[in-house]
Simulated assay, not measured.
Amino acid sequence: MSSNLVILTGAGISAESGLGTFRDPDGLWARFDWRELATPEAFAAKPEEVHAFYNARRAGLKTSTPNAAHHALVELEKAWIARGGEFLLVTQNVDDLHDKAGSERLVHMHGELSKMRCEHCGYVHDAFDEITTDLPCLNCRRAGGLRPHIVWFGEMPMEMDLIFDQLGSCDLFVAIGTSGTVYPAAGFSQVAKEAGARCIEINLETTDTSPVFDEVRNGQATQSVPAWVAEMVG
């Protein structure tokens, strides 16, 4: 095994657990206008509508369970670390399926649907089932400041210093189930490549960034990811 592994996952790894993707023809942003639901401006203008959208999505997490791809990455993490390697799993997904599966060295760069943040004091806490505009913060007790702990359009993704630090020293970079169209994540493969890493893409189909990768594997995540992991831990 290489010493430093960075994995990026996108909506494709959770699709087979029944969670909708965003940019597919039948994805969330084909049915809902992100400008009305996923920007700081939208939340400022219509907080009740934004809360209703995310409350519904949060409710959907309760019936979703990790699939074989999520579990395979947990197996890989344990094996990689046991052999002395560095491991970081970066997900663009705001669901909690990696967490439920048992991933530990995990960064949610686009936030977490299962958490809420107070705009008054910055406190982050497990989210209530239903967040409303009149609920008080559990820390500062002020009402009206709770929002989904989500990175909206126009906001900076989380943990970028850590991510770029790991990309700059990784030996192997693997992108799984991500469209390759959302930046900065779409540029991670190029950063890793320039650092000398071998780059592998595992996706349902080829993407705009596929030419950057040394190896491209196409297929369902629940089949392709466990097969790749089996080769790695073999």
Score class of each variant (00 low, 15 high):
residue 55 N to G: 09
residue 78 K to L: 14
residue 86 E to P: 01
residue 119 E to C: 02
residue 108 H to M: 05
residue 21 T to E: 10
residue 78 K to Y: 09
residue 42 A to W: 09
residue 34 W to P: 14
residue 85 G to P: 07
residue 33 D to R: 08
residue 22 F to N: 04
residue 79 A to T: 08
residue 97 L to D: 04
residue 33 D to L: 03
residue 102 G to N: 12
residue 41 E to M: 06
residue 32 F to W: 12
residue 93 N to P: 10
residue 73 L to K: 01
residue 81 I to V: 14
residue 32 F to S: 12
residue 118 C to Q: 04
residue 90 V to K: 02
residue 54 Y to F: 04
residue 36 E to Q: 14
residue 27 G to Y: 05
residue 58 R to L: 15
residue 79 A to I: 04
residue 115 K to I: 00
residue 99 D to F: 04
residue 61 L to C: 12
residue 41 E to F: 04
residue 91 T to D: 01
residue 59 A to D: 15
residue 57 R to D: 06
residue 29 W to R: 00
residue 48 E to K: 13
residue 82 A to L: 13
residue 67 N to Y: 03
residue 42 A to I: 08
residue 48 E to L: 05
residue 24 D to L: 03
residue 61 L to F: 03
residue 60 G to H: 12
residue 99 D to H: 11
residue 115 K to V: 00
residue 63 T to K: 14
residue 71 H to D: 15
residue 118 C to M: 07
residue 105 R to N: 15
residue 98 H to Y: 02
residue 101 A to W: 07
residue 21 T to K: 11
residue 73 L to N: 02
residue 117 R to I: 00
residue 64 S to R: 08
residue 93 N to R: 02
residue 53 F to T: 12
residue 118 C to S: 04
residue 56 A to T: 15
residue 22 F to G: 09
residue 116 M to F: 01
residue 49 E to A: 13
residue 33 D to S: 10
residue 94 V to Q: 07
residue 55 N to R: 01
residue 27 G to L: 07
residue 101 A to L: 07
residue 117 R to L: 00
residue 37 L to W: 05
residue 98 H to M: 05
residue 104 E to K: 14
residue 36 E to T: 10
residue 66 P to N: 10
residue 44 A to L: 15
residue 106 L to M: 05
residue 112 E to R: 07
residue 47 P to V: 00
residue 88 L to Y: 03
residue 26 D to K: 15
residue 69 A to K: 03
residue 66 P to V: 11
residue 113 L to E: 02
residue 90 V to T: 04
residue 35 R to K: 12
residue 71 H to A: 10
residue 21 T to H: 06
residue 96 D to Q: 06
residue 114 S to Q: 10
residue 56 A to V: 06
residue 92 Q to E: 13
residue 61 L to D: 09
residue 33 D to P: 02
residue 104 E to D: 06
residue 31 R to G: 12
residue 53 F to V: 13
residue 55 N to C: 11
residue 116 M to C: 05
residue 65 T to L: 14
residue 22 F to M: 07
residue 86 E to S: 15
residue 47 P to F: 03
residue 81 I to N: 00
residue 63 T to R: 13
residue 89 L to I: 14
residue 31 R to F: 06
residue 113 L to G: 01
residue 73 L to I: 06
residue 58 R to S: 14
residue 34 W to G: 08
residue 49 E to G: 07
residue 22 F to I: 02
residue 68 A to Q: 10
residue 80 W to F: 06
residue 42 A to F: 11
residue 86 E to V: 12
residue 98 H to V: 05
residue 40 P to K: 01
residue 79 A to E: 14
residue 107 V to A: 09
residue 79 A to Y: 12
residue 115 K to R: 11
residue 82 A to G: 13
residue 35 R to S: 09
residue 72 A to P: 07
residue 98 H to K: 06
residue 64 S to H: 06
residue 35 R to D: 13
residue 71 H to L: 15
residue 111 G to N: 04
residue 113 L to R: 05
residue 93 N to D: 02
residue 73 L to C: 01
residue 60 G to A: 11
residue 97 L to P: 02
residue 106 L to Y: 03
residue 52 A to D: 14
residue 24 D to C: 02
residue 43 F to Y: 15
residue 83 R to W: 07
residue 51 H to V: 00
